[in-house]
Design a protein around this nucleic acid. Structure first.
Length: 497
RNA sequence: GCCCCCAUAGUCUAGUGGCCUAGGACGUCGGCCUUUCAAGCCGAAGAUCAGGGGUUCGAAUCCCCUUGGGGGUACCA
């Protein structure tokens, strides 16, 4: 058993991430992909991607590309799947249609399944009635025991049947979930589910079982929401005489309202996090910790360690709520750990995109690097940088009068401070951090101002705000001319007040 | 309604019968550092381990019931 759990057995591990292109993947989907990927990498197994596009109606254009791009961004390379040939392709179900139909026919022939001619309308009425009577809903098996004659008649009427699985009326189906242990279902409570739709497409249940078998999937790691479908799958494996894979149902990731993640929860599409300036490394670390833990204290875990220490045993059972605050913190940790060059590379696209349009592009990389050095500790996401550092790029900064007038320093005194500061700056050579600090500390004393007040005044004039990187680093980077211009502007503003 | 799963602070979690006067992290609050904001460091508050019954010398840990939450109940995945 522990052999199965850890996947260290002789049987090689093959896991798959099987998204359906009905929308863009959210963090829950990607967390499932991540656990599969980590398990594959940990065990030296294969990570397969299979596109489950059997629902023609709900197909969303661009979804496949979005799914693949999400995985690429996270650095989860797949061993087989779209764009990566393998021995078990094709890896898109709509290209495997020829497989499902014969197997469905075989099941009918062997009496494991039967054609059902019930109309959508009848099914709907039946369900409504069941709901009205407070009875369990489910197909009433009307077509289960049709004679060949009756079937022929229906076909003659031109009705395209669906193929339904003939669920045993008695007994129970159970399986051992790697995370939850033994789970048992009463067969009598399951209805005869559809295997093949009337348009000839398989349902998820059929295609999934057949593909997992032919692709030799060893472990199915999927979200909890699939647990209720598992007995059907077990029955199918048995009817098809396939050996079922091992199952592990992962705890779900819930929205802030504790319900299943969906579009209604807003920015949950993974690529939106990239847009928002989160780092893939932070995202991976964070997602790994949603439902899995290394030990009782480790939070920051790099990719290699994640792979090395990942195990099914340490996956929890309880659903987790996606907590963006912790992600932000963790993203900050990863940003601070970046080298200046790396962070500069990552920051430039965000600056180019979000800085006001009147600021000329392209930005000077050397200058950006210096700005980044001053802002690295202050940003939690890359997208915050343009706002934090905007004053470094603006030709002019409008210091709000209400800020200037409310520092606690009387306006007269502030005016004097600015005037003297201008003199000092004009004659200053070199114009660097140390010279500035030495001179302005002395100046505060000369003006009988607290350093706090003098520096605060200058900060507002120069950055337009009350929070910024250390003043003299900022001034040195901005340069003498910029400093003079900004102080002059603040001076004018204050004098007119 | 019925079926399945889950249940430790606001959130993520550690804990698998005694090491738990329940540990870590985010967030919150306070302090230090300091020219501001961050970062960093230090500290605090915050959990009757959902509730109730058992089992046991001993239970967050095992069993039962209740409650709560989630998921499923489609010719969706």
């Amino acid at each position: 058993m522990s052999e199965q759990l850890s996947g260290d057995g002789s049987k090689s591990v093959r896991v798959r991430y099987a998204p359906s292109p009905t929308g863009y993947p959210h963090v829950g989907n990607i967390r499932t992909a991540l656990f599969n990927w980590l398990f594959a990498r940990h065990t030296g197994g294969n990570f397969v991607i299979r596109i489950e596009d059997t629902d023609v109606e709900r197909r969303v254009a661009g979804a496949v590309e979005d799914i693949l791009e999400s995985l690429r961004w996270m650095g989860m390379a797949w061993d087989e799947g779209p764009c990566v040939d393998g021995d078990f392709g094709p890896y898109t179900q709509s290209e495997r249609l020829h497989l499902y139909q014969p197997l469905a026919d075989q099941l009918v022939r062997e009496d494991y399944a039967y054609p059902c001619f019930c109309s959508a309308q009848r099914l709907e009425e039946m369900r409504a009635e069941q709901v009205r009577l407070n009875q369990p809903t489910g197909y009433d098996r009307r077509c289960r025991d049709l004679t060949e004659q009756e079937r022929a008649r229906c076909r003659a009427e031109g009705i395209d049947p669906v193929i339904r699985f003939k669920v045993p009326r008695a007994g129970r189906t159970q399986f051992r979930d790697l995370i939850r242990g033994k789970v048992t279902f009463e067969n009598s409570l399951l209805d005869d589910f559809v295997l093949l739709k009337s348009d000839g497409f398989p349902t998820y249940h059929l295609a999934n079982v057949i593909d997992d078998h032919f692709m030799q999937i060893s472990h199915v790691l999927r979200a909890d929401e699939w647990m209720a479908s598992t007995p059907r799958h077990i029955m199918l494996y048995n009817a098809l005489k396939y050996e079922p894979p091992l199952f592990a149902h992962l705890p779900m990731i819930l929205g802030p309202d504790k319900s299943k993640l969906s579009k209604r929860h807003g920015a949950t599409s993974l690529l939106e996090f990239r847009e928002e300036g989160y780092l893939a490394e932070a995202m991976m670390n964070f997602l790994a910790l949603l439902g899995w833990s290394l030990d009782d204290r480790t939070e920051i875990i790099d990719r290699q360690t994640l792979i090395k220490s990942f195990s099914l045993e340490r996956i929890g059972k309880t659903a987790a709520i996606f907590n963006i605050d912790k992600l932000r913190w963790m993203n900050g940790v990863y940003i601070r750990a970046l080298s200046l060059e790396e962070l500069t590379d990552k920051a430039i696209p965000f600056l180019e995109k979000h800085l006001p349009s009147h600021i000329t592009r392209p930005l000077d990389r050397d200058y950006v690097r210096k700005v980044v050095a001053l802002e690295q500790d202050r940003m939690k996401t890359l997208k915050e940088l343009p706002e934090l550092a905007r004053f470094f790029f603006e030709a002019e900064v409008a210091a709000p009068l209400d800020l200037l007038a409310n520092t606690g320093v009387p306006d007269q005194k502030a005016v004097e401070a600015f005037e003297v500061s201008l003199d000092v700056i004009s004659g200053m050579e070199p114009f660097d951090h140390d010279s500035l600090e030495t001179r302005f500390r002395a100046l505060a004393t000369e003006l009988s101002l607290k350093t706090k007040d003098l520096f605060g005044l200058l900060r507002i004039a120069i950055t337009g705000g009350t929070s910024a990187p250390p003043l003299f680093d900022t001034m040195a980077l901005l340069g003498k001319d910029q400093c003079i211009r900004r102080i002059q502007k603040a001076l004018v503003l204050l004098r007119c007040a």
